[in-house]
Amino acid sequence: MTMTLETATIPKPSRLMLAALALGLIILAGFLAPLISPHDPDAVDLLNRAAPPVGLGGSWGHALGTDQIGRDILSRCLWGIRTSFGIATLGLVFSAVLGVTLGIISGLAGAWTDRIIMTVVDVFISLPNLLLMLCGIALLGTETWVLVVLIGFVKWEGYARLVRGQVLAIREQGYIEAARVLGARNLTIALRHVLPNLASPLAVILTLSFPGVLLMEAGLSFLGVGVQPPVASLGRMIDDGRNYLVNAWWISGMPSIVIVAITLLFQIIGDAIRDRVDEWLDA
């Protein structure tokens, strides 16, 4: 509704398509990292430390330069994208499963269960995610699965709220009544009749919350409490390069550019989706 006029210079579909295409390429590059990355991301080359990227005196052998111990930055970026998207995707799927389950229970079950779940949702909304993540990491360590579980644990409340609202709306529909009359139980109703109706709003929330989750992983890795070496992670790479900013900005700079590009693309796609949803709600 609000972005329609200012984005009018490029026709909207093509803007969305371009962003989606670019993002798709980045994700594909990350997915194919083991096949297409020019070097082993962990291969140390002490004779070729902090080599500049192409265009600043570097060679095509290390297109984005090398880091403080001679590892190829392009390869590490590709593997880092793979790590970030892997963790964010698994975490979001976990949070969606948790949130959808609790949302359906909350919507279909009685008043007391509903009230308890919604209170917990309120509590989770009002607490900063970072705090809960830090507690969990201190307790469980920094293995990758811990990050996935914790992301699921701090992000579920959005899904639970959405699903509960939808369930309450759907519950009044005639076909649910009909199913109930035919003797279907709550679980059958939830799985057969409610869940399929939730697919598109869920897809929207998943896309909108993706960059936030991606940045959470990158941020924790940057602080040194996320993904641990030797696993390549964009956040960790930025942190590694901080001490070399004066002489070799690209060590931090390249992964930073990758992160910004990804979040910007998501932002463009998210805005376009929001416009569509608004139009759809208006219609």
Binding site: G219, I238, R242, L245, V246, W249, V260, T263, Q267
Partner: peptide, 19 residues
């Protein structure tokens, strides 16, 4: 400004104004 995380933004400012 909305899409760039604090730590990337801060490093950018350090590079530009600091170095």
């Amino acid at each position: 400004g909305y899409a760039v995380p604090h730590f990337v933004f801060g490093i950018g400012l350090i590079l530009l104004f600091g170095y």
